[in-house]
Amino acid sequence: MSTPLLAIGDAPLALEPLVAAVTGGDQHPVGANGAIATFLGLVRNHNAGRGVRYLEYEAYEPLARKTFERIAAEVGTRWPGVRLALHHRTGRLEIGEPSVAIAAASPHRADAFAACRYTIERVKQIAPIWKREFFEGGDVWIEGATADPDDARARAEAERTACA
């Protein structure tokens, strides 16, 4: 079974299937790519001065999938030659496990790097996903950005970060 470009669920993540998914295919013959940039987000053993034991990720999965499609469409508009894969994991994740995996294939490295960075910034801004941190002595829901996919300022900020 071929790996979907966009996915969210409780299966463990690895980069290789995403790399395979962004290469090949009728519209993206293997030889057309000059670069693949990848990103793997990991569960860190410390946060805000606390020792982290593990994380639990929760998502509104139907909306998360649509949000991933939206991010892929934004990438396609901004970097037309790029083919993107984005997978996010849910459930309990142990220290060192990947929580998010991204691969961006492009004829040129600059676009691959930028699309990859843009994608993780947008995931953090608008994907309906939450992490609950279990640390030594308690637990807390982490709350970051108010999700607003139509916030042009946030989108421009993600693009600035990606192209810095």
Binding site: G41, Y57, A59, Y60, P62, L63, A64, K66, H88, S99, V100, I120, V123, K124, Q125, I126, A127, P128, I129, W130, K131, W141, I142, E143, G144, A145, T146, A147, D148, P149, D150
Partner: peptide, 25 residues
């Protein structure tokens, strides 16, 4: 399962979701 503004009218049977600030990644 589509983002919507708070002033959007609802219909019978709709699923309304409230989302605190997100922290994926």
């Amino acid at each position: 399962a589509d983002y919507a503004r708070m002033d959007q009218p609802l219909r019978d049977g709709d699923e309304v979701a409230f989302l605190p600030p997100v922290s994926g990644g």
